[in-house]
Amino acid sequence: MAILVTGGAGYIGSHTCLELLNSGYEIVVADNLSNSHIVSLRRLRELTGKPITFYNVDLLDRDSVEAIFLENNIDAVIHLAGYKAVGESVQMPLHYYHNNITGTLILCQVMQKFDVKRMVFSSSATVYTSVESGAISEDSPLGATNPYGRTKLMIEEMLRDLYVSDHDWSISLLRYFNPVGSHVSGRIGEDPGGIPNNLTPYITQVAVGKLKSLRVFGNDYPTPDGTGVRDYIHVVDLALGHLKAIEKAMSTTGVEAYNLGTGKGYSVLEMIRTFEQVSGRKIPYTIVDRRPGDIAVCYADPSKAIKELGWAAQRGIEEMCADAWRWQLHNPNGYEEMEQSSLV
């Protein structure tokens, strides 16, 4: 069985590909490498000893996308490709709408043409409104607060409409919370490029000496230590969620959304302290003002995924931090160092 993974060279994509290969699937990766690295795929081959068919393709290029389906017998698609930086989406909204929505539209049109109607879509917890605080279920109010989140929400609606028009489709909408960590080998991990937007890679880059200190946005929230609480999920657990979703997609029809999170919240200071314990490095930080729109507490209610997918996160905060540190320690410049050496 061959699975097309769009964005398969990226952070979540590479870990998902690894778990697919280890579970006996054949994979075809489509990635334009705009925010990912070909080195991740080389390392996947090293880790698994299995072949990977790769296309350097932009989903906006319909002819190139069609060529993938012409040249391979694709059974299902895991769609992760897309721009993903919230702040950048505010500055470049049309760029995000065009890339994320139009790319998905073309992909679905090509899938329909080739009668491939099994999809797992990489959505996000940003599709929920920011007014809620506490556990979020799939029935919580929707209403993204930035262009990135709105692209995810619009794509979800588009996919629901697609199923209404043709009940042969089977689509899982996976709403991620906060992916962290890396594969235990330390060979693949998160390489954000530039200044990280997310907490964990920022912490690891401070620990390795690339950045001087961490800014903590607010310490006056109604939480045990005053800092914001979020649901951090190990990227390997997240990847395994995609396998469960593919299994379900191959045996059912319909459109269902699933939260992928641990169901537990950890504060910013908890993450810092845990990372200091597992790494033996001190993480200097300063408290700054809250960011507009941030809420005190946000974590997943993952009970639907547990019940319907048979999936639950297994890895705790210590493992998340230890694996993130192992990746950063062995790859202080991410994949860049490996890329340069491979050119010599």
Results as ranks from 00 to 15, higher is better:
201 P>K: 13
264 K>N: 13
216 V>M: 09
292 P>Q: 05
139 D>M: 13
270 E>F: 15
61 D>E: 13
165 S>N: 13
209 G>Y: 15
33 L>R: 04
116 V>N: 01
57 V>G: 00
36 S>V: 03
258 Y>E: 06
174 L>N: 03
281 R>T: 01
316 G>T: 07
253 T>A: 08
170 S>N: 11
62 R>G: 00
74 I>W: 08
332 P>H: 08
131 V>A: 11
262 T>W: 08
45 R>H: 07
327 W>K: 04
69 F>V: 01
223 T>Q: 07
313 A>L: 05
335 Y>H: 01
275 F>E: 07
89 S>A: 05
239 A>W: 00
324 A>Y: 09
113 K>R: 10
89 S>H: 02
177 F>L: 06
344 V>I: 11
293 G>E: 06
109 Q>C: 01
152 K>L: 08
198 N>W: 11
225 D>H: 12
149 G>A: 12
57 V>D: 00
65 V>Y: 03
36 S>I: 03
299 Y>G: 14
77 V>P: 01
287 I>L: 12
275 F>P: 02
78 I>P: 00
61 D>A: 04
27 I>P: 02
141 P>Q: 05
228 G>A: 10
292 P>R: 04
242 H>A: 10
129 T>V: 15
221 Y>S: 14
318 E>H: 12
32 N>K: 03
269 L>W: 08
267 S>H: 03
34 S>Y: 08
26 E>C: 01
184 V>P: 00
37 H>K: 10
22 N>R: 15
254 G>Y: 03
336 E>A: 04
297 V>K: 14
284 P>D: 11
331 N>K: 14
237 D>T: 03
278 V>H: 14
105 L>G: 00
40 S>T: 06
139 D>C: 06
127 V>I: 15
323 D>R: 10
185 S>F: 14
176 Y>F: 15
229 V>F: 06
317 I>H: 11
282 K>Y: 10
330 H>M: 14
55 Y>S: 00
48 T>C: 09
276 E>L: 12
99 N>Q: 11
38 I>C: 04
183 H>Y: 10
185 S>D: 12
270 E>M: 10
165 S>W: 13
6 T>Q: 05
